[in-house]
């Protein structure tokens, strides 16, 4: 069976939407019959990416964030989270564990968690134009062989 499905969500960069976005991602992923651990990994990674967009993409204003969810071939869930905000000056540095330009309530572990909880993470960013985070995670098939 070839699964091919997608959805797009758009919301303002209000922190109250962090919980909403990860719940939507979990609901969409449910059609792949993931384990609880897989669902939790996806929720955690989405929470990190959306929080980054809110905190770093739009540090002093409310802007637009979009989340695209797509089921690709071979049961791969692709999640694209995009903002049109500040952008990251040095993506490699931002991905270093414990590096943060956020406040004391940030740990600098966002990208590290996205990397370790998903199979694949790509970050594209341009100063003044915004940031796009693309994450992929294959959901193992529990019934089919």
């Amino acid at each position: 069976m070839k699964l091919d499905n997608y959805t797009v969500l758009e919301f303002p960069s209000r922190s109250a939407n962090e919980g909403f976005a990860r719940t939507v991602a979990a609901c969409f992923a449910a059609q792949l019959d993931p384990t609880l651990e897989e669902i939790n990994d996806i929720k955690t990674a989405v929470s990190e990416a959306v929080t980054n967009a809110i905190v770093h993409g739009y540090p002093d204003r409310i802007g637009k964030i979009s989340m695209k969810l797509r089921i690709k071939e071979d049961r791969v869930l692709e999640i694209i989270i995009r903002d049109w905000g500040t952008g990251i000056a040095d993506v490699a540095q931002a991905r270093v564990p414990m590096f943060t330009t956020g406040g004391e309530e940030r740990s600098g572990m966002g990208f590290t968690i996205m990397e370790s909880f998903m199979d694949n993470l790509k970050v594209r960013s341009e100063l003044g134009k915004g940031t796009t985070v693309t994450m992929k995670r294959r959901i193992a098939c529990r019934v089919c062989k």
């Binding site: 990190e48 929080t51 004391e104 740990s107 600098g108 968690i113």
Partner: peptide, 13 residues
């Protein structure tokens, strides 16, 4: 019931 990296910062602090 859920935490992201905010929990890491909270625990360390």
């Amino acid at each position: 019931t859920f935490t992201d990296s905010s929990g890491i910062a909270l625990l360390l602090r």
